[in-house]
Amino acid sequence: MKITALIPALPLAFMSSMAFSQNIDVQVTNLTHGLHFTPLFISTHTSASNLFEVGQTASAALKPMAEGGSIADLIAASPAGSVNSENPVGGLLAPAITSPVVSLDTGANDKLSIVAMVLPTNDGFVGLDSWTIPSEAGSYTIYLNAYDAGTEVNDEVIDTVNGGGDDGIPAAPGGDAGMNATGVTTTESNTMVHIHRGNLGDTDLTGGVSDVDSRIHRWLNPVAKVVVTVK
């Protein structure tokens, strides 16, 4: 939580606190059968900012998250006044696992956004963009889709060079992917953030076009469930 960052925003927070300021609990479940999520970045913010927006170019801070799972740039780019949870799981969120409860005092923020990279993909991520936090107490369930950041070719080749910082899929944490793939494609026609078309994969673990396994690493939306409890 950015407590220091809240101080400059105090006048604003005070003004709007009559209308807002909520205590919320957030819990994220990875619904998939065989995909991992990288460290979650959960942010409450105002309508003045986004972590991402469909149909728009991924920000410079979103790109390293979507391609390599790093949320450092998103944290750095988070506007003053945002109230965030950074990596609440303490690492990967494995298939079908639910995160710990993340409690946030939203202050003046009425929007909730969540992102994490989906592994193994090139630049796929699970995302929630600017969900309006209800003022009424209660439990709310949101289902999240997998998006493609549009910043990297979906060649489906696992490439750990430079710690996965190069093009390619940085890792398949389940240890169930192949190697020596020739690559599914060399182009990315939609360079805006869009709904991910899914992994193609193949069943050749020592070659073929893809290093991911079509029987394990595909998915159908939604890929995550978020439960928000407004207190």
Binding site: T32, A96, D202, T203, S214, L220, P222
Partner: peptide, 20 residues
């Protein structure tokens, strides 16, 4: 298999390159 319930990833099928 993984021995937990999750959402299904879908089927691959022989028409999508899985000859077996």
């Amino acid at each position: 298999d993984v021995d937990f319930v999750a959402r299904h990833p879908g089927v691959v099928t022989q028409n999508d390159g899985y000859s077996s």
